[in-house]
Design a protein around this nucleic acid. Structure first.
Lengths: 122, 122
DNA sequence: TCGGATACCCACCTTCTGGTAAGTACCCCT
DNA sequence: AGGGGTACTTACCAGAAGGTGGGTATCCGA
């Protein structure tokens, strides 16, 4: 998966979009980055309770490959890396908005539990 | 998974929506059902090249549990079962439209291959 | 000097997902 | 009588996804 680039063949557009978004934390990373604009690695980790460092780096690398996030490395000590959304990441987030609204409605319908994390809304 | 109902806890709405849609063929089933209105089991199987009977039944059962599809059994011989979308399934499909548009744009951007199947558009 | 922070990488292990192949029971067509 | 279609179910298996716990090099504060 790390080398197997997500590039189809696809049945349709939804298929292609689901591909870049499939991964336990990807939409959450997208959301977090959208909310805060720019985030450092450790900030993302703290914002996503339960994510392992391995998964976070792996997902971030894949999203970088897919052109969704921008990775800015500052060659200093201690290391500093900033992540932000590219324009494709931003537009993907916008495209996910209606899906988010549907999901929020569903949460209310089935009375699902929600993880209480400060900073998470909707 | 068959018994583990998809019911959170969730971080946000997108999370909840992704949950009911995660599965290799689910969005495709959703799309197929949306295009044709009502479909029988074998029609769906033929419309989704590569799907195994096991996965199709499994996904259909889960989507029924999640209130996305309606299953109508006709007690005859040979057996006849018709599947269609519920209103929640229809609204989910509508919510996926913008994501589909994003994906279609992405396919063009990266020049991904598309499965050529008659009946599939966009 | 010791612990904590930064941003990772690596190997190992478990869990989950999906595929294969078989069986079921009854029908129609040739 | 044999083959194909209907809509599944079950058992088994392979590969992918994700979690755990270690290591790296450097710096800062206590």
């Amino acid at each position: 998966m790390s080398t197997g680039s997500r590039c189809g063949p696809y049945f349709c557009g939804i298929d292609a979009a689901m591909d870049v978004v499939s991964g336990k934390w990807k939409v959450l990373i997208l959301w977090e980055l959208n909310e805060h604009g720019v985030r450092r690695f450790a900030e993302l980790r703290r914002g996503l309770p339960g994510v392992s460092e391995k998964m976070l780096t792996q997902h971030l690398r894949e999203m970088e490959e897919d052109g969704l996030v921008h990775r800015e490395v500052y060659r200093e000590v201690p290391p500093k890396v900033e992540y932000s959304l590219t324009e494709h990441g931003l537009s993907l987030n916008a495209a996910l908005a209606s899906l988010g609204a549907w999901g929020t409605e569903r949460i209310g319908r089935i009375g699902a539990e929600k993880v209480a994390v400060s900073g998470w809304r909707s």
